[in-house]
Write a protein that binds this DNA or RNA. Sequence first.
DNA 1: ATAAATATTCGTATATTTGCGAACAATAAA
DNA 2: TTTATTGTTCGCAAATATACGAATATTTAT
Lengths: 106, 106
Amino acid sequence: MSKKELTADQEQLARFAKALGHPIRIAILGMLANQSCCYHGDMSEILPIAKSTLSQHLNELKDAGLIQGTITLPTVKYCIHSENWNKAKELFGGFFTQLQNTDEIC
Amino acid sequence: MSKKELTADQEQLARFAKALGHPIRIAILGMLANQSCCYHGDMSEILPIAKSTLSQHLNELKDAGLIQGTITLPTVKYCIHSENWNKAKELFGGFFTQLQNTDEIC
DNA sequence: ATAAATATTCGTATATTTGCGAACAATAAA
DNA sequence: TTTATTGTTCGCAAATATACGAATATTTAT
C-alpha cells in the first residue's frame, strides 16, 4: 500500500475537466471562444436555462479560472481567460497524447 | 428567447469531461494510458482510496465509455477504450482550437 | 425621486457524487 | 468442504451540484 499522492497537474486537469463537465458550460465556452457572444443577456436569450442558473454556471467557470467577467454597465461582459485556457489546452493535450500505440492495448 | 438546443457533440464532450472531472479518475486513466498498470488490485494499492470507491470510479469511467474491463480471474483487467478515447481526444482538441487569436479577446 | 434594465445573490428543493466498511459472489487452492 | 483471493454491490452518510423564482443591488433614463 504505497498510496501515491496525486500530482498538482492531475488536480488541475481534473478541476478544468469538472468545469467542462456540463453541456451548458460547454456551450457558454463555445460562444465565448467564437466571440459570437460575450454578454450575459445575450447568452441568457440563447441558452435554455433561467438567468440565475446561468449566473451560477458563469461563476463556476470563473472559479475554475476559464473565464473572466468585466462589468460594462448595465451589462456584464464575459470572456475567455486566455492564459488559463491555454493552460487547460496544454494539460488536456498532454493527457490525451499519453496513449501512443492505440492498437496494442490489451 | 430562441433557446438554442445543445448539440450532440456538446453533450458528448460534457459527458467525457464529467468523467475526467475527478483527480482519481485522471490518475486511473493516466496509469491505463501508460500501460503501467491495468489491474484493479494494482491500482487499489497505489491510489489513496478504498477498493469499493475505486470500483465506483472505474464504473463511471466505463459508463462514460472511456475504459473497458475484462475478467481474468481472479483479477479484473482494465484498459483504455481506444475508440472512445480517440473520440474524446478529437472532441477536446476541436473544442480548444476554437479559440484562435488568443490575444485579441476583450 | 421613480422607474427601467441588467445581472447577482438568496432561499429552497431535489438529485447526484463521493466515500467507507460490511456483506456478497465467484473461483482457485488446501 | 473449507479457506483464501479478488472485486463488486449494498447500505448508509455527508457533501456538492443543479435549477428555479423572488428578492436585491446598481446604474441609467424619465
